[in-house]
């Protein structure tokens, strides 16, 4: 089966006063129905810029988008707004990080969900729409949907608001759901509930999900595949078990080392990656990660001069963009583990 979403060599850049800001640089991936792709990376790595491009939501007067985004066999990049609009909300839906600001403060939630339904179901009457909306609110776990239909977003808790967003996104049975940090603004228990809800709904409707987060813990809980982004590029890509159990890229290892829940030992000292992400208008030469990489010196000048390609390593579609040879990576990883063990 053809994957529902296929992205090929996506590039997004913004002209700014300091020069062209390259937010996404040649990103390619695919997602099939019923699977969840986690996209991780630090702030500014281009996750949201990628997500917005999937719905054609960039303001093309201020952003340049190239490459291909194919949704259900239809190409999106470069198509007129009116054409993309028919896909939005019907084939592809999106939920955002902060449900409070993403919902219109002045409109009743029921009306907001109904609006999403009616724009793609022109013939739907009032009664039918209301029934559908209440059914959806019920499905995403909003208690007393009949009563809450007429309430405003500020009368909901954070978790309930995100459920409203999810109901709104799923009201048209989209084949693809893009969730941009859907749980970042929520506390941990609610976060787990929302992730569970997404997983259930994916199984039920066979939706393809792109789950964007900066938290590898979220990826571990809810994703099948994962894509690690750094400075607008993919540095590692593969099945969740592969990537989380045997991370290959030094950046992925660094991210993992800074997530307590995944290391099984909450007491262990967290090691954040030293340094900070590069300026996207003045990228480092060679491997964009080299100024922060502990292994950058191991290969002479190579890391500083030659950008690594994303290539297949091992089995099962695990891909990686790093010059370090496999054997060397394995040796260094083993060393790290022992060192960490000793330090404890």
């Amino acid at each position: 089966m053809d994957p529902y979403l296929r992205v090929t060599d996506l590039r997004v850049s913004f002209p700014t006063a300091d020069g062209v800001l390259r937010a996404v640089e040649g990103v390619s991936f695919a997602v099939e129905g019923g699977r969840t792709l986690g996209v991780v990376g630090e702030s500014g790595s281009g996750k949201s810029a990628t997500a917005l491009a999937l719905l054609g939501l960039h303001d093309l007067r201020r952003a340049t988008v190239t490459g291909q985004v194919t949704i259900g066999g239809r190409e999106l990049v470069g198509r007129p707004e009116t054409e993309i609009r028919r896909l939005r909300g019907r084939n592809v839906a999106m939920i955002f990080q902060d449900p409070l600001s993403a919902l219109h403060p002045y409109h009743r939630v029921g009306r907001q969900i109904a609006e999403a339904y009616r724009v793609h179901h022109r013939g739907a009457g009032r009664g039918e729409t209301r029934r559908r909306v209440i059914e959806m609110m019920d499905r995403v776990g909003i208690p007393q949907p009949d009563r809450r239909y007429d309430q405003y977003p500020h009368e909901f808790s954070g978790g309930m608001r995100q459920r409203v967003m999810i109901a709104m996104a799923l009201v048209n049975d989209p084949a693809l759901l893009i969730a941009d940090e859907p749980t970042t603004a929520l506390d941990v228990t609610v976060q787990a509930q929302i992730l569970e809800l997404l997983t259930d709904l994916r199984a039920e409707f066979r939706t393809a999900i792109v789950l964007i987060t900066h938290d590898l813990g979220v990826v571990g809980q809810a994703a099948d595949d994962v894509l690690v982004m750094y400075a607008g590029r993919i540095v590692e890509q593969g099945h969740v078990e592969q990537v989380l159990r045997t991370p290959q890229h030094p950046y992925t290892s660094g991210l993992l080392a800074s997530v307590p829940s995944l290391r099984g030992d909450p007491e262990a000292d967290l090691r954040p990656i030293p340094g900070s992400p590069p300026s996207l208008t003045e990228l480092p030469t060679g491997c964009v990660f080299h100024p922060r990489c502990r292994h950058a010196g191991a290969l002479g000048d190579r890391c500083r001069t030659e950008p690594p390609e994303l290539r297949v390593v091992g089995t099962g579609g695990h891909r990686l963009a790093c010059h370090l040879p496999t054997r060397e990576r394995a040796r260094r990883r083993a060393e790290d583990t022992t060192r960490a063990g000793v330090a404890r």
């Binding site: 609009r85 955002f96 403060p105 609006e115 724009v119 709104m168």
Partner: peptide, 21 residues
Amino acid sequence: EDFVRTARAKGLPRSAVYGRH
């Protein structure tokens, strides 16, 4: 604002995005 982006993400036409939201 985010809610305007939401309105666009729903697939609303420009007139509704401006007028209603």
